[in-house]
């Protein structure tokens, strides 16, 4: 019997060893399997954002626009790049404005100023593709009553920020608090930027064509698309005027060809009429011009050469005609 039990126990031992090795193989297999992530896990990074860093933007090792940095200014974070796909991750609802104006790339970075206690700044460099687009986003966001700066073609500052366009770039440098002292870190950054970035030759600037008299200062703006509620109107320069306490607006836009300009003028006129406007017979020394009364205001729309132009929001037909004629004279030259 003892003989038998020894045999049996040897058999049992052998079997046990076999079984235990199988278990180890299973364990090894499972360990290997766990390194091939489940598809769901691979996707996870996209929706549960890590609190410290946004994985959705890519990073630059250095921000070429501001090197070498002005004295006393140090980078606080790495520079981040955003494109049209993820711009809204950075600036949320404002993205729409840039996207419809030809936005291509944003580089943003935070800096701190050793010279000023507790002050940090965030610099946004928007590459808008061309200077017209840059001017468009600059002008439509311009804060009223801001102080113009002459360090760039278009620049102004508010109590804690500097805004400018330079060639195809629109730059915002926003500080965490108002800087009282002489030292203006925002301006220093702006100057650095301008020094570093070659400016393209500016195209013929339509804004020079506006008659100067009675124009409200710094009111020239560029509407990139969908101007005045009409689908077809894009790249429209506008300027505001004040006569006798009444305000009205003049606008013009360079189109591809005279035929295009005439077509657009006629289309816009039709649009106004469809909107409840009434055409008023009038004598104007402008060929093809129409005077339309719509929603209690007067509008004149015409074209000259490749330019579409007109006046709107006037409460007084004479004032409208007056401004239209002056605008026409400018265009004729």
């Amino acid at each position: 019997m003892i003989h038998k039990s020894k045999n049996i126990s040897r058999l049992q031992t052998v079997l046990s060893m076999v079984i235990l090795s199988v278990l180890m193989i299973i364990g090894a297999g499972i360990w290997i399997a766990q390194s091939q992530f489940n598809t769901a896990v691979l996707q996870k990074g996209a929706f549960l954002p890590k609190p410290t860093q946004k994985k959705t933007s890519s990073q630059l090792s250095s921000n070429p626009y501001f090197l070498p940095l002005p004295e006393g200014i140090q980078p606080l974070t790495k520079a981040e790049i955003f494109d049209a796909g993820n711009l809204s991750d950075k600036i949320n609802g404002k993205a729409e404005l840039y996207l419809s104006a030809g936005f291509t790339r944003l580089v943003s970075q935070r800096f701190k100023d050793d010279g000023t206690a507790d002050l940090w700044m965030e610099a946004f460099v928007y590459d808008m593709g061309n200077s017209q687009n840059a001017f468009s986003v600059f002008s439509t966001q311009r804060r009223e009553g801001s102080e113009s700066l002459d360090l760039a073609e278009n620049a102004y500052r508010t109590s804690n920020a500097v805004f400018l366009t330079h060639g195809r770039y629109y730059v915002e440098i926003i500080a965490s608090k108002v800087s009282e002292e002489e030292r203006q870190p925002g301006k220093l950054m702006a100057v650095t930027f301008i020094r570093n970035t070659p400016s393209e030759k500016a195209a013929l600037n339509e804004s020079a064509l506006f008659p100067e008299k009675a124009m409200v200062k710094n009111s020239i703006a560029l509407i990139a698309s969908n101007a005045f509620g009409f689908d077809g109107l894009d790249k429209i320069y506008t300027a505001e005027y004040e006569f006798d306490d009444h305000s009205l607006m003049a606008y013009l836009s360079r189109r591809g060809s005279p035929a295009e300009a005439t077509k657009m003028a006629s289309a816009y006129g039709k649009f106004l009429l469809a909107f409840g406007g009434k055409q008023i017979e009038t004598q104007l020394p402008i060929k093809g011009a129409r005077l339309i009364e719509v929603l209690d205001t007067y509008e004149i729309v015409f074209s000259h050469g490749s330019y579409l132009a007109g006046v709107r929001d006037a409460v007084n037909a004479d004032q409208a005609k007056n401004l239209a004629i002056r605008l026409y004279d400018q265009l004729k030259e």
């Binding site: 766990q34 896990v41 996870k44």
Partner: peptide, 27 residues
């Protein structure tokens, strides 16, 4: 015990994530 521990481990790691105690590729 091996399979029970394995089973309990599988239950524990069924949380979405990449940490060692989360799903990763555990079958």
């Amino acid at each position: 015990i091996f399979f029970f521990v394995l089973f309990m481990w599988f239950c524990v790691v069924t949380t979405l994530g990449e940490q060692w105690w989360q799903l990763r590729g555990w079958p």
